[in-house]
């Protein structure tokens, strides 16, 4: 799993592509922990190239959100419609603010 992070003045942007499932969710968890352990609690997750998120992936994002709040927040950008539908169907959509583009998300911090 290739993960890129970029640092901005008030937040960090993290990006990966493809699937997030039981085989690689821990790699994402480690990348997010590398940020939160340094006190970087404002995180934008660019999901524009993410095609699939299994529950293992959602728990990584939920855990990160628990760590970030209330000092900061994890927000999600450009979620694929199928992923969004599944998230909303189980009622977990309310735990994340979502944006349509990275610029708006970064600008809101």
């Amino acid at each position: 799993m290739e993960i890129q992070t970029s640092e901005f003045k008030r937040c960090n942007v993290i990006k990966t592509s493809g699937r997030i499932d039981g085989s690689n969710a821990q790699e994402l968890a480690q990348a997010l922990k590398a940020l939160t352990s340094k006190g970087k609690m404002n995180i934008v997750f660019d999901m524009s190239d993410v095609t699939f998120v299994a529950s293992a992936g959602w728990w990584v994002l939920i855990d990160t959100q628990k760590t970030c709040k209330p000092a900061g927040e994890l927000v999600l950008v450009k979620i694929d419609q199928g992923i969004k539908d599944s998230l909303n169907l189980v009622g977990m959509g309310s735990y994340f603010r979502t944006y349509e583009d990275v610029t708006s998300a970064v600008g809101d911090f």
């Binding site: 039981g22 699939f52 299994a54 529950s55 199928g82 539908d85 599944s86």
Partner: peptide, 21 residues
């Protein structure tokens, strides 16, 4: 359609992950 294909894939992914783990 694509949304339902995703739903089937997600259900099977979760089921097989449970079997493995």
């Amino acid at each position: 359609n694509e949304s339902d294909i995703y739903a089937v894939q997600l259900a099977v992914d979760e089921a097989t992950t449970n079997i493995m783990e």
